[in-house]
Design a protein around this nucleic acid. Structure first.
Length: 802
RNA sequence: GCUCCCGUGGUGGAACGGUAGACACGUGCGCCUUAGGAGCGCAUGCCGCAAGGCGUGGGGGUUCAAAUCCCUCCGGGAGCACCA
């Protein structure tokens, strides 16, 4: 019988569609596993071969868990709002709704063609009013708690997409979506106060099993700096007193300050600059303003100019010149720094350019020379008055204490994280549920009026203002508070708001009068295993953590981290080793792979490519080997018999132990390899013992569910192989009666002996020394020692020849 | 520039400090076949007829034993990049 993957896979997929055997129970009974993929953005291009790599991994785990008797929630849905769909809709002059629906249908068809065991009864779509109603509810919850606010602030503006962007969505100064350089604009926008959660977002990383790399990126993004805010007081030429607050993480270097430098944008610049310096300073400020932030921050040169005024050192009273320089950024810290060239690389460069002498206040450890650059390490204090002779860490504490005592400083913490800008001047997103009333100001839309639905009567083209602002039917409303005519907020929300809570919706996807059933969420969540790409490290994964913590505080959730374990799926590259892209012409279409080789082959190939987390190039040749493996397995079904075979039985159980452990450890490549070895052994046997064959099919079923079901059915069983209990490896069979002992002489392998498993050390040594081969290597030499590693090897060390 | 990760056959990759190269691709030879192959068998790190020697980016070290641990250099990737 031929292995006709197309017919066979169609048969099983139809059955799964009709019978929904993978629907999760309403609530878990016993152990539960919530196994989640990052839901896809249903783009017009269709599924990428990279998607099924993560989906297959979660499917293998989900199927194994079910076989182990756990309640499993394994859902799929669509992150359907967003720019690419909207832009395409504008291009073809259709409503984005239609485009999104078509894309979703295509994605669903493609994903279902791969036989994943999703619970399709729980599908969610973020662009559906029944979903975004609750995204709007989430906005209101944040608003109620003062965590959503509108403010005028300098924001990132993408001139191509005609919308503002969150900091997380600006990569190297460019729009994350389209690559256009981002401009700074002063605009009134909606923000989520994620900064209020900075410390908890940092602390929470300790308790979750996420890749260190992702945690490091989040830590870095949150960017906690501990130090001091120090006031440097001064007097202008006209006699007015002023004070410059400076943030530093190195108060220990305070005695090494040679200048204080402000950002060119600092408000004090206008009021303290000495009249004689004004022209030069103004020219410098204008020039700095003209430069894009990128240009300014990329230069290694530290350019600046003096303001012609001094400030006093808070502890020594010494006069310290006040400057401005382009390397000081207005948004970070206090927008002012103390310049310590001896112990900071940037300050060193600045001092070199303008002739300040470095003043060393920390003696480097012996052997390290001063003078060739800044010394940023630890050491003993020097040139620091009363602090000389103590270690710098202690000096940092003592100096801040002294500053506090004279009211010239305080301990301070600064964060890199900034509030999440969530407004978008675009159509295809969830409308922000706020009404703007001339009398009452901002009025939240009452919950009973949700959802605020997207109007259809609009011109979608972006103009820099939300297209919603041009729909009279949308924006003309009466104020819910006073009843007077008012206007709806016309911006929509960042799509990352939609995806920040979707994993909660899967627990009770049809709830109509609340976002989720708290009891069901408490029963299923948090997510036990979350799989997706690393590109979301400081986007979705940070936002989801933030929102989870907010909902925890609201009392809606009994946990405050969304996912216990996170795994990153490695990229699949084109055959040329480059990222797949249309322009390179190296894109592999999953539909073609399924048609040519079958879904099971596709799934196993992606698992077999290499370590799950590594990037790996596609190889059309390589897929053939997997296909052959399944062909062979298929062929073996005709040779299943009742006779038993001790060696095959043992190998089957050894394979079972390995495959089980490898799935747990995400080592799918070696699990597949073990299955191949077993099939090769079955192929060499007279006939395949039915008992071992069944065990094999059970192990195969998470990887190649269609073929496994088919061959299981051929054994005459009515019940699906997916419903069988995951077998347990027989420990007795994992231990061999005989073992191979490697013999090394002076570290080189010289022989290998087969000995009984229970052999004692003395007899083993005897057997080893009796070996002919070993004798030829030790003849005429004295043995210094013999190292015995039980069950592994014997290492003979000879005395050095004279 | 800083931080982290990684360098193993022609290729993707295996290898609790203990037989380096599992498994698979490719290649070679042979077989089945009218023929073809995404079929079957055997071989396949390098040098060597063999015995044996050499081999995990280069150099050094620790160890009875190093792909694995330490130092250093080279190469590649990722993240951060004036975070005061």
């Amino acid at each position: 019988m031929r292995y006709d993957h197309a017919t066979l896979e169609k048969k099983w997929q139809e059955r799964w569609r009709a019978e929904a055997p993978f629907a999760a129970p309403d609530r878990p009974t016993g152990k539960k596993a919530y196994v989640l993929d990052m839901f896809p953005y249903p783009s017009g291009q269709g599924l990428h071969v990279g998607h099924p790599k993560g989906y297959t991994a979660t499917d293998v785990v989900a199927r194994k868990r079910r076989a182990e008797g756990w309640s499993v929630l394994h859902p799929m849905g669509w992150d359907a709002f967003g720019l690419p769909t909207e832009n395409y809709a504008i291009k073809v002059q259709k409503n984005p709704k239609e485009i999104a629906a078509a894309n979703i249908d295509n994605f669903r068809r493609q994903i279902q063609s791969l036989g994943f065991s999703y619970d399709w009864t729980r599908e969610v779509n973020t662009s559906d009013p029944s979903y975004y109603k609750w995204t709007q509810w989430l906005f209101l919850k944040l608003y109620e708690r003062g965590l959503a606010y509108k403010a005028k602030a300098p924001v990132n503006w993408c001139p191509k997409d005609q919308t503002v962007l969150a900091n997380e969505q600006v990569v190297n100064g460019c729009c994350e979506r389209c690559g256009t350089p981002v401009e700074q604009k002063e605009l009134s926008q909606w923000f989520f106060r994620i900064t209020a959660y900075a410390d908890r977002l940092l602390a929470g990383l300790e308790g979750i099993e996420w890749p260190e790399r992702i945690k490091a990126m989040q830590r870095n993004w949150i960017g906690k700096s501990t130090g001091a805010e120090i006031a440097f007081a001064g007097v202008t030429e006209s006699g007015e007193e002023f004070s410059v607050p400076v943030f530093t993480t190195r108060p220990d270097t305070l005695y090494g300050v040679v200048a204080v430098v402000l950002a060119p944008e600092h408000p004090l610049v206008a009021t303290v600059t000495a009249p004689a310096f004004r022209d030069r300073v103004e020219a410098f400020v204008t020039e700095a303003a003209a430069k894009a932030e990128r240009e300014r921050t990329e230069s290694v040169q530290k350019r600046g100019t003096a303001l012609g005024v001094s400030v006093r050192h808070p502890l020594t009273g010494a006069n310290i010149p006040l400057w401005i320089a382009d390397y000081v950024l207005p948004q970070y810290g206090t927008g002012a720094v103390m310049v310590v060239p001896a112990h900071d690389d940037r300050d060193w460069a600045f001092a070199e350019a303008y002739g300040f002498d470095p003043l060393f206040v920390i003696a480097p450890p012996a052997g390290i020379q001063h003078g060739e650059g800044a010394y940023t390490g630890e050491g003993i204090m020097v040139n620091s008055g009363p602090y000389d002779g103590i270690v710098n860490a202690q000096a940092a504490t003592d100096i801040v204490d002294a500053l506090v005592a004279v009211k010239a400083g305080t301990r301070a913490v600064h964060w890199h994280l900034r509030d999440w800008l969530v407004s978008r001047q675009r159509y295809w997103g969830a409308p922000i549920p706020i009404i703007l009333c001339d009398d009452c100001g901002e009025v939240p839309v009452p919950e009973k009026d949700l959802p605020v639905e997207l109007p259809d009567d609009v011109d979608f083209r972006p103009t820099g203002e939300s297209p919603l602002a041009r729909s009279a039917s949308f924006h003309d409303v009466s104020c819910p508070r006073c009843g007077n005519p008012a206007r709806r907020e016309s911006d929509t929300m960042d799509t990352f708001v939609d995806s920040s809570w979707y994993f909660l919706r899967y627990c009770s996807p049809t709830e109509d009068d609340r976002p989720f059933d708290p009891a069901l969420v408490a029963a299923w969540c948090p997510v036990d295993l979350y799989v997706g790409g690393a590109e979301h490290a400081v986007l979705h994964l940070l936002y989801a953590r933030f929102v989870t913590k907010v909902l925890f505080d609201v009392g809606a959730l009994p946990f405050d981290e969304p996912a216990r374990t996170l795994r990153n799926v490695g990229l699949i590259l084109g055959e040329d080793g480059e990222k797949m892209s249309k322009s390179r012409g190296n894109v592999v279409n999953p539909d073609d792979v399924v048609a040519a080789h079958g879904a099971d082959t596709f799934r196993i190939y992606e698992m077999f490519m290499g370590p799950f987390e590594d990037a790996a190039p596609w190889n059309e040749q390589g897929i053939v080997g997997v296909r052959r493996f399944l062909e062979r397995a298929h062929g073996l079904a005709e040779n299943v018999g009742q006779a038993s075979d001790a060696a095959l039985h043992r190998l089957t159980h050894q394979t079972l132990a390995k495959v089980s452990a490898d799935i747990e450890g995400f080592r799918f490549n070696t699990a597949v390899s073990a299955l191949m070895i077993l099939v090769n052994a079955f192929g060499k046997a007279e006939s395949v013992p039915q008992q071992d064959w069944e065990t094999f099919l059970q192990m195969l079923s998470p990887f190649a569910p269609h073929l496994a079901e088919e061959l299981w059915e051929r054994l005459g069983y009515d019940e699906s192989v997916a419903r069988q209990n995951w077998p347990t490896a027989d420990a007795a069979l994992l231990v061999e009666d005989e073992m191979k002992i490697v013999v090394q002489v002076d570290g080189k392998m010289r022989d290998a002996l087969i000995v009984p498993a229970g052999i004692d050390e003395e007899s083993l040594k005897g057997r080893v020394l009796a070996s002919e081969k070993v004798q030829t290597w030790i003849r005429g030499r004295h043995i210094e020692k013999i190292v015995v590693v039980p069950g592994k090897l014997v290492s003979i060390v000879l005395q050095k020849a004279a």
